[in-house]
Design a protein around this nucleic acid. Structure first.
Lengths: 353, 353
DNA sequence: CTGAAAGCGCTAACAC
DNA sequence: GTGTTAGCGCTTTCAG
């Protein structure tokens, strides 16, 4: 195990000065082909690792990261996300990283665009965002690329990349998992439903992936006898929504329901509570207060945790590592699909850590 | 927000030198009552926070952490744990933290004691261990306390503490979770079994907790009709073991089995594979190769992941933070109880992160 | 008791 | 192209 080896050591070995070594380490050019090779070789052989403390202390820089995220006041999911940003802030300020949050209205594309605009006026060194609005995100990313501002995205991908990294879940797999949980806990042939309950504005791409996974799972079960239905519902049309759900829950062949949106989970939970829970299994997403309540009292059987808090935290950390230490982020950072039940719930909560 | 304020600033304000300020910050004494007060006041008022980077860089110390753990070659679980130690090493060597592994024989108390002994000969600055052997661990901890060596434990607690931190799981809850998974996926009244398959040597305390949780869960299910049985089996007595298991699996009222040890999981898996899987549910622990195989082919229904790798990693990190940055560790750091199924397995594997 | 000064490992500006 | 050097903020030694 090579003991702490310093730039100075490398320099001596290569018979050059620390300045030169530093130049090749940072690819700053201005180095003779000859010395370059020599130094590189030694770097390799010795397995040199820079002392990051000294590095950040020495380069007395401070970095700005802008976080363009939905208004946390509008939605608990995004509130948790904001906590992740804050947590990252605590962790990274000591290294000279500033984090500047910009909030947009979750139901208003224009607000995304305008916040993106103002954010760019004092250009940050890097950007984190949740690209909820497709077209607007695309525009934003284009400018970022033009201005050479690295960015990472959380929550959902956008095909046309350019992002340093995507942090989130394999949504297809997520849909499969939902299917499996319903199926394993209620394996008789019958009907399994996947429900998307929207607001007026929504990004369906996100949810389509889950639906595909859900259907694939059942298609793959041999034996068959599984009917899969999917419903897209707009929760602003209260009456028709309620009717549709009542019909669904009334179906005697119904075995399980997966609801992909938090609004939807609340509505379906309340309905089931009113009608009384029968054998139908119910799986939903995320550790939101209302979901926890319905998990605890048995209305919801399992939750799949998407951990928006940690997504945000990791995203910032990737950016910080990129800026400070030139560590490059993984292009896609997929989270484990966490299954939450009544019995392991506590172990996921009260985590000071 | 007070901008970064340095020792030098404090010194100027107090009309003294940085040396004096440093002395009061570290309570090193040798400071006139007068200056002391003055400096303290300024420290308070300005809310001075030291730059930890500079701190650890400046005090050019190097710390030794000893990791007294089971021999990784004996067991895949502990192999993963060792990887966690190695990972922590990569992370912390750059900060001047050395990690020295000491391996003991998983089936031999004396080897624990003797390794503990040799470890103490070059006293480390801190210690990590898995207190598998009760009495021996107690002795070891006593010496650590006497010599003022902070230590953290993973895997299982030992009542009489003194440890900086315990990193692991709530074992009672873990047993409950096992029960729940069996129950939810096979809810008819009937028999549920919890099995401990030991080697000659074992620490039953550890598993007792799980068993208690398992039983409590079913006791709390209203409706009742659940019979819970538990078996302690010694896998060195092959024939009697096989007979006992066959009897168990032959019981038509059997609904589910939870096996608490890895050896046990393998044995039961093979047996079920031979007899053919019927409706009986089977839950085991940890992402070990053989378990993964049986999960994938449907013999095992769920795994509960104890993540020994991460336990070790976190443990070292707590120690390092304690030594380097004087951050104090949480007295108990409980991990989430991760449920692994066929559909979310992949999302827990191939994690470069 | 106190101040001055030499590091810690790395960066970056500036000569040559 | 390359070497030198002055920091970064803090610790620690050593005169006085």
């Amino acid at each position: 195990m090579s003991k702490k080896i310093r730039i100075k050591d490398i320099a001596e070995m290569a018979q050059v000065s620390v300045g030169t070594v530093d130049r090749v380490i940072h690819n700053r050019g201005e180095v003779a082909e000859d010395s370059y090779r020599k130094i590189m070789a030694i770097l390799e052989k010795t397995g040199y690792k820079p002392n990051l403390l000294a590095r950040t202390l020495g380069s007395n820089k401070t970095f700005r990261i802008a976080a363009l995220m939905p208004n946390p006041a509008q939605d608990e999911y995004w509130e948790q996300s904001a906590e992740g940003v804050k947590q990252a802030q605590d962790e990274w300020t000591q290294y000279g990283v500033e984090i500047h949050p910009y909030h947009f209205d979750l139901y208003n594309k224009e607000s995304f665009a305008s916040q993106a605009q103002t954010l760019l006026e004092t250009p940050p060194d890097a950007v984190l965002t949740a690209p909820i609005f497709h077209q607007e995100a695309l525009n934003f990313f284009r400018t970022c690329r033009e201005q050479n501002i690295p960015f990472v995205v959380v929550n959902n991908t956008i095909e046309e990349g350019g992002s340093l990294s995507f942090i989130g879940h394999d949504l297809n797999q997520s849909g499969r998992l939902g299917a499996e949980l319903l199926h394993l806990s209620n394996p008789q042939p019958g009907t399994y439903a996947i429900l998307h309950v929207y607001d007026d504005v929504h990004n369906s791409l996100h949810l389509n992936e889950k639906e595909k996974g859900f259907k694939e799972y059942f298609a793959e079960q041999n034996g068959g006898g599984f009917k899969v239905i999917s419903r897209d519902l707009n929760h602003t049309h209260e009456p028709s929504l309620e009717k549709e759900l009542n019909d669904l829950l009334g179906d005697a062949s119904l075995r399980g329901i997966l609801v992909t949106t938090s609004k939807g989970a609340f509505i379906v939970s309340r309905l089931i509570e009113k009608k009384g829970k029968n054998g139908v299994r119910f799986v939903a997403y995320d550790l939101l207060k209302e979901n926890l309540h319905y998990l605890e009292n048995g209305i919801i059987d399992f939750l799949i945790n998407q951990n928006s808090k940690r997504q945000a935290f990791i995203a910032i950390s990737q950016l910080a590592n990129h800026l400070l230490f030139k560590k490059d982020a993984l292009p896609t950072y997929l989270f484990p699909l966490e299954i939450i039940s009544r019995q392991n719930l506590k172990s996921y909560l009260n985590t000071g850590h």
